[in-house]
Design a protein around this nucleic acid. Sequence first.
DNA 1: ATCATTGCAAAAGATTTGCAAGGTC
DNA 2: GACCTTGCAAATCTTTTGCAATGAT
Lengths: 166, 166
Amino acid sequence: MAKDYSLQHVSVSLSPQERFDEYLQSRAMRNTQQRRTVLEHVFSHHDHFDVETLIEQLPDKGEANYVSRPTVYRTLTEFVDAGLLRKFELGGRAIYEHDYGYPEHDHMVCNQCNQFFEFHSDEINNIRESVAQDYRFRVTGHRLLIFGICSDCAQPRRQKRKQDLI
Amino acid sequence: MAKDYSLQHVSVSLSPQERFDEYLQSRAMRNTQQRRTVLEHVFSHHDHFDVETLIEQLPDKGEANYVSRPTVYRTLTEFVDAGLLRKFELGGRAIYEHDYGYPEHDHMVCNQCNQFFEFHSDEINNIRESVAQDYRFRVTGHRLLIFGICSDCAQPRRQKRKQDLI
DNA sequence: ATCATTGCAAAAGATTTGCAAGGTC
DNA sequence: GACCTTGCAAATCTTTTGCAATGAT
């Protein structure tokens, strides 16, 4: 149901891993197993996720490549800093999504199933520009969420189960 | 610095107090001192606020008309429910603003001083409509935040102090 | 008098931090 | 070996909840 962005990916020369390596080196930070584990998992598929969900999917305590909760938090912050991920808040929690190499977009959120749907709109840039001019505001970014009911949930028959309150 | 909406206020027949009275009566809820205290304070001026700030401004424990923290939270939820306030999240906290009798608008937020600036854009509705059509999504609302640096903060000289991270 | 509401204390949920032990360069 | 990182435990911050006492109708 989400739009296919595969043909409009922003062209990038480095993989997320390579890009992160650069970031680490430029700051004299170390390439640890934990950082590799999280990075690999996060970029193995495109999805929005919260920390709880991510931790559930990573190896449990006792298993190989376990990453503790504080380290997951610390690492996600680094990814945002490195420009790999974007972060926003919804329902009292942080939501992360791919940024590096991924085209600009905004989100619809279904109030029923809490799923995200991405869309792109050029008009947002018009709004940003005109508002910036009116207020002599130097825009650095924006966040638009459109709330409502998705088409699946609008059909009472084959109703989808409510997703965990993302 | 915020746009003057005084001439475009949505016309309403009831004051927030009256409107809330209706809400209470329709639900067999009671008109308590605490609810009156919070309502009166919140609608004594137009401003965005978080719970902490509100509580600081309300009477302290021991003083007349003290309202406990849990009751403030409970009451704000009721105001949102009653259509008096809108709630959104920023910086890991809830921010509230007037809704009842106040025209639709969105916000710019200065990354430096954390101040809010309101603006109105009809184009948002175009975006909402066109996206809704594309995805057969039934839109119920939206939230747009534009981030950047406000004109005051952009001037290095008379720099404003950084506001508490609202 | 009935029953909603309050304040208190405590819980809950998300995220952060101090610090000693361990890992990377 | 130097020093960045990690995991643990505990703290922090925001918000919520159980419950007995209080107050509105």
